[in-house]
């Protein structure tokens, strides 16, 4: 199944990208030196389309084990992180880290505390103090930034 689905998906995405590239601004011919901005990406997209067709025809199909529950849970936690990061980046990181540790079988309180509270806090302090990185303001970071 994936023998056709993945190359077809790739071709579809390339066709969309190709269509988008036809909407790029063009340089008037009199000023043009070399290529139009769309020429190069279009050339590469056509190469990908051609190779994807060849993959469908010639490449042997691969047998896959189904994606495991842990991988799906982890991807679900990515989504949770992406949403919580809108409120506060480190809140998102803490919830993600604790959730991932629990989902992967960690049941010790100190273990979950270590990854969800201590490690994001230490990483924040390291980047804030040593590397002078300014993080986006949020629920928790405002406690530090005031």
């Amino acid at each position: 199944m994936t023998r056709y689905v993945v190359p077809c998906g790739t071709i579809l995405l390339c066709l969309i990208a190709y269509w988008l590239s036809t909407r790029f601004d063009e340089v008037p011919p009199i000023l043009l030196r070399g290529m139009q901005p769309a020429d190069f990406p279009q050339m590469v997209l056509l190469l990908i389309i051609a190779l994807s067709v060849l993959v469908m025809v010639f490449d042997p199909p691969i047998e896959h084990a189904p994606i495991g529950l842990n991988a799906w849970t982890s991807m679900g936690l990515f989504a949770v992180f992406a949403l919580l990061a809108q409120i506060d980046l480190f809140l998102g990181l803490g919830v993600f880290a604790g959730g991932l540790a629990y989902a992967w079988g960690e049941r010790r309180i100190w273990g979950i505390g270590l990854v969800s509270v201590l490690s994001p806090a230490l990483i924040f302090l390291l980047f804030d103090q040593a590397f002078r990185i300014r993080f986006p303001r949020g629920l928790l970071t405002d406690l530090w930034y005031g």
């Binding site: 990061a85 990181l93 604790g98 991932l100 540790a101």
Partner: peptide
Amino acid sequence: VPVQILWPIVFCFSIVGAYALDQSM
């Protein structure tokens, strides 16, 4: 080192590292 401890920490480093260069979400 238990993977359930290691990989959440690696994720935190990854995300903060990705943010740090241009400080962009």
